[in-house]
Design a protein around this nucleic acid. Structure first.
Lengths: 250, 250
DNA sequence: CGGCCAATTGATTAAACTCAATCTGCGTGG
DNA sequence: CCACGCAGATTGAGTTTAATCAATTGGCCG
């Protein structure tokens, strides 16, 4: 497990999630680690439920998620919402914001959130000064594309139960990879209404699909947690590809 | 219209689609144009219907579409297919392939295709040597994200007719922006089966949704073309946001 | 205790899927 | 020149999935 490697280099308690994430890919130098940590000196706290990016508004900031979960979403004029992706600690929002005039999505805090606020112009200098970090960011970009592609496959070609299982697998793997895992358990920071808006389903049908998975013994649902009882079966039934989340070329 | 600006700088007949696309955003120097054209010296022809990227296979190439249309898609083990996006002239595939071990999607030629084959390591040197071009590529990346996000919204929260109309609007705008437009008409290089796999619908339902749009006087369908008869009404009914495709910060 | 948010359940309706033909245009071989 | 085959488009009929409408329940907090 990649988190094991990180732990031996950087104790998880002291390193930021972004350093843990990139450090799991390649060996970062002291200087690179110091630069990445320095990038996150300017922090912002966002209350649970609050929007911090609004579609069509001027956006001149790059955010790094330090603690907590967020969602990216789009709103339609009839009030319907489509959640595009989940941002977990170590994830970056607005990495390519430099030459866009306006945000193409909204973002909202699913939990109390700690964000690093970064001037996107600093992103530009990274490729000059820190090629290894630039490589890591390029990898992050490709990974975000893969995750969003998986979301499109889920929405377009999986059944309700498969969509749910597939999303749980994605989040479980992502949490594991940043060292926030808790065995089979996944902390659920979203409501069933959020799940519905992620999976393109109604709230009622989301609820029923959850019970169906439960009745088949595939998951166990507690208050704010879900246990993936049979990960192999879930992967099998959804065609989930964990390599989309972790593959890296040395 | 941005294409007008391009035409005054670079005659469309001589400049590559990528130069036309980036030149529409910002004024490129002679040197930058020459570099971009040189990047596309090594070309590859792909027959209609043939795959040129396969999911999970080792991918160490960046492709620039010079002529023709392609699709990116994912396949499930039950044979179902989800088309993720369309690649038009000037679009780049595998821009962030440098640090990924394997392709996370497949790609196939919708028409006879001319691709520029680029060593992805050349992408790395761009940010050192040509900051303006690097800015353009960063803009392309953000735009691809916006397009894929729109695809997720389509799949998750639009009705069958809305999905269809929304996709037609996307492609019509994109074709216009690279100067390949033909008024209200859109050349349809995909079959109805392809449309179905793009929109997460069955072939039969796609066919019926097309006729429904036709009966409402919103589109006219000919052999391989569609005319958007009432673009404003189509935008209105789908919440289409053209800014996702063209906004640029100076 | 009351109010609110989230989850759950029942009943009905609507959207989209599947199966099964049929049709149409087009190229190819006899 | 025509019969044949094939791919793509179209139509009909019946089924399934998921949406909608409408309560109801369970926690939690003030």
């Amino acid at each position: 497990m990649q988190t094991g490697i990180v732990a031996s280099i950087q104790p998880a308690e002291t390193a930021s999630a972004l350093v843990r994430k990139l450090g799991a890919l390649c060996l970062l130098s002291e200087e690179e680690i110091a630069y990445l940590e320095g990038l996150q000196n300017n922090t912002l706290s966002v209350d649970k439920g609050r929007d911090f990016i609004e579609e069509n508004a001027d956006l001149r900031t790059t955010f790094i998620v330090m603690e907590g979960w967020a969602i990216r979403y789009g709103l339609l004029s009839n009030g319907r919402r489509q959640i595009l992706s989940y941002a977990l600690p170590g994830d970056i929002l607005g990495l390519h914001v430099n030459f866009r005039a306006a945000a193409t999505y909204s973002a909202s805090a699913l939990t109390p959130l700690t964000l690093a606020v970064v001037d996107p112009r600093r992103v530009l200098e990274i490729s000059q000064k820190y090629p290894i970090i630039a490589a890591g960011l390029s990898w992050c970009t490709a990974r975000e594309f893969a995750i969003l592609g998986d979301q499109a496959v889920r929405l377009g070609r999986l059944s309700a139960q498969q969509r749910l299982a597939h999303l749980l697998l994605e989040l479980w793997h992502r949490v594991e990879l940043i060292g926030n895992g808790a065995g089979d358990w996944l902390e659920m920071h979203m409501t069933q209404a959020d799940l519905a808006d992620t999976l393109g389903l109604s709230l009622v049908h989301t609820n029923r699909s959850l019970s169906a998975l439960r009745r088949q013994g595939l998951i166990t649902v507690h208050k704010d947690h879900v246990r993936l009882d049979d990960i192999d079966a879930l992967i099998e039934m959804t065609d989930f590809n964990p390599k989309h989340l972790s593959e890296f070329r040395v």
